[in-house]
Design a protein around this nucleic acid. Structure first.
Length: 289
DNA sequence: CACTTGACCTGTCCGC
DNA sequence: TGCGGACAGGTCAAGT
């Protein structure tokens, strides 16, 4: 599900909602969703206090006062939703946008805090996971060692962006954009949206992309991701933020999931096909091979 | 090493 | 209404 803007939206919400709360208990129903040693849970999660909520690429990092960290990947359908009160729902309640109370059948991990509030990890497809790891060991995780730079960092430049693609020169630009070791956090939505912005066909070989095109792609990727964060991310039927609310970026999408509609730049009908193994949307007039 | 494909799961939608 | 197949915002382990 979530790409960088959605994970960042969840991070910001969690930061406001769970900082300084103390963990009372944890429940799970699936070892793949929560594959942690019992003695670590008992010794370093229970009774710990949330001291920070960070993000790297599409991974959330919830730091605990015990020098352990909850490392969380939402994959396709994961959600982290904070619920202050599981009893009363309805108009005016902070979670009134939820169509039903949590936990539900997709809840696979649940944290209860000392004040009675809960953090639910819901995951329809069970690809996501929550791992409890010593904070100092987080950088040693294989993914963390190989993941590329954060594209929205102020000191990340267009020339650095272009240089990252060097070792993926024989694949398509879309496959390379989706490769987390090239640049962190890009997924299917923002790959299509940024390629449309830069007028690049997703099947173009990386080796054929000009310096100017890399500069345009860099600029548009940052613009589109910053806009998406400002709009609270993109929501399909599975994505909601930490308060249970949907994001509105899809109201601003130019090509993603808009096949059959007009290109907002030239009016040509947007088409969908497969590229890099993923559903891919382009304007066939603006983006040519 | 670089690249592509299948697998991991569950739910939904679309055509017969 | 039922059934089969494709597909869904991600990544990893295999295969070539």
């Amino acid at each position: 599900m979530p790409e960088l803007p959605e994970v960042e939206t969840v991070r910001r919400g969690l930061h406001d909602l769970i900082l300084k709360r103390r963990v009372a208990s944890v429940w799970h129903d699936n070892p793949k969703s929560f594959p942690n040693a019992e003695h670590d849970v008992a010794g370093f999660l229970i009774d710990s206090e949330i001291i920070d909520v960070r993000r790297r690429a599409k991974i959330l990092l919830i730091d605990l006062s015990t020098d352990y960290t909850l490392v969380i990947h939402l994959k396709m359908t994961g959600q982290l939703v904070f619920v202050a009160d599981t009893v009363r729902f309805g108009a005016g309640h902070p979670n009134d946008s939820l169509v039903h109370a949590l936990p539900d059948k997709s809840t696979h991990v649940s944290f209860e805090f000392k004040d009675g509030s809960h953090l639910y990890f819901n995951d329809q497809r069970k690809f996501g996971w929550v791992k409890l790891i010593p904070t100092l060991e987080v950088p040693d995780i294989d993914f963390m060692k190989k993941v590329g730079p954060e594209p929205l960092e102020a000191d990340f430049t267009a020339s650095e962006f272009a240089a990252r693609f060097a070792r993926r020169s024989k694949t398509s630009i879309k496959a390379a954009l989706l490769d987390q070791t090239v640049v962190a956090g890009v997924g299917n939505i923002y790959a299509d949206e940024s390629l449309w912005g830069a007028r690049i066909h997703p099947k173009r070989l990386v080796s054929s992309i000009t310096k100017k095109e890399f500069e345009d792609l860099y600029t548009d990727l940052r613009e589109v991701m910053n806009l998406a964060i400002a709009k609270g991310g993109s929501s399909n039927h599975t994505y909601i933020n930490a308060e249970g609310k949907k994001g509105s970026y899809m109201d601003f999408a130019r090509v993603f999931r808009r096949e059959g509609l007009e290109c907002p730049r030239c009016g040509t009908t947007i088409i969908k096909f497969r590229a890099a193994g993923r559903g891919t949307h382009i304007c066939p007039n603006c983006q040519k091979i």
